[in-house]
Design a protein around this nucleic acid. Structure first.
Lengths: 209, 209
DNA sequence: CCAGTTACGCTACGACGCGTAGCGAAAGGC
DNA sequence: GCCTTTCGCTACGCGTCGTAGCGTAACTGG
């Protein structure tokens, strides 16, 4: 969904896939060293060993390029099966926290979201490259918990979808807010507290409609 | 805590308080029309009817100025007593969502947080002007719930502090993530779902240590 | 093999915002 | 009245943006 077609438009010189990879890697390196605000297109081009014009042939601006550069980092997140819903959530929280500790991730994520509030195309790119892709973690975690009998099966797909969205925003939002806004460490103790709060909330929700 | 001293440094021409107000108001207006990335110091100065140098006498850069400009918006948040913890939380969630719907708030908040990941002074300013100031909502909500008997009293002040921080990050984080990252509306239905999840989690936490 | 098409590297350019310096004038305190 | 600080104004060097134009490289179809 993110790259729609192999845009080998049939004729002419094809785009260098090596340049694509080099540019995205150079973007992440520049984010680490310089951060978002001091990252320049010329600098990225120099690091990647390509011309600045090559960047503009692929992305319309800095924002779109950075989204693609950091999206792959979020794909590394996994949901290891630890045997219980509590342990699974705690594991993914700590993984997400580790990711947000990487300087290229934290500085880029917030900046891109900030820009996306005024850029419809960018917002859609954030949604498809980050939000929708990572909801898979919630879906699989939920299915595992249902298979274990920790959570009841839900027959209304609309209800399921809304619950998934809610959990996703609560988990990701709490971790991001703790790490970047409050600027406090997401350590094991915090992860344990948060996980207990969330899971006990999910467990006791079934009783009261 | 945000403005430490009445910096009337004893001698010389005093700073124009009218200019202060005009600059901050002009900053918010520019954020509405232009957003974060296209906001320029020269533009703000022109709107405020002051010289650009006057801005640099007060703030070292754009970031610091914008934090002060939007901090007052967050001070408008209140915790109206609606009779129950559930209703109180739901009320403040909707208030916060309405605030994040304002273009000057959403574009500025994320951008400033993004910059604060690489700027210690700015991070401290965000903490004192936004985070610490709004934790008051959690503290009073908790006290009210304890007075009503909805939540037990806690004697360990360290434990209380950590729980306050946790709830703050969960509430603020979930709303921000829903509104700005997922870019979905924080309507009454979502607020009700989220609030039920959080409050039932808080309620059932007492049973298991 | 050759013509057509597209990507590439390179250079140069205008436009614009940043942040600073220097000036004379204004507004307070002692 | 003298001193101190702020104010508006102008001007400046610096860096980045995003684009245009060129000759060359890579790949395709006839």
């Amino acid at each position: 969904m993110v790259t729609v077609m192999p845009q080998h438009t049939r004729t002419g010189r094809p785009r260098s896939v090596a340049a694509d990879a080099a540019i995205l890697q150079a973007t992440r390196a520049a984010l680490v060293e310089l951060g978002w605000s001091k990252l320049t297109m010329g600098d990225v081009a120099a690091r990647a060993g390509v011309a600045k014009t090559t960047l503009y042939r692929r992305w319309t601006n800095k924002n779109e390029m950075v989204v693609d550069a950091v999206a792959v980092l979020f794909d590394e997140l996994e949901l290891p099966d630890r045997g219980s819903l509590l342990a699974d959530v705690e594991g993914v929280v700590l993984q997400f926290a580790a990711l947000l500790n990487r300087p290229e991730a934290k500085t880029a994520l917030m900046a891109v979201v900030a820009e996306s509030t005024r850029d419809d195309a960018l917002r859609e790119r954030v949604r498809s490259a980050l939000v929708d892709r990572q909801k898979r973690l919630v879906v699989t975690g939920r299915e595992r918990a249902q298979a274990r009998g920790e959570l009841p099966y839900e027959d209304d797909p609309c209800e399921t979808s809304r619950t998934t969205d809610l959990i996703f925003d609560v988990v990701a939002g709490a971790v991001v807010h703790r790490a970047l806004v409050s600027a406090e460490p997401v350590d094991e103790e915090w992860a344990r507290r948060f996980t207990r709060l969330l899971v006990s909330g999910l467990g006791s929700l079934q009783d009261s409609p």
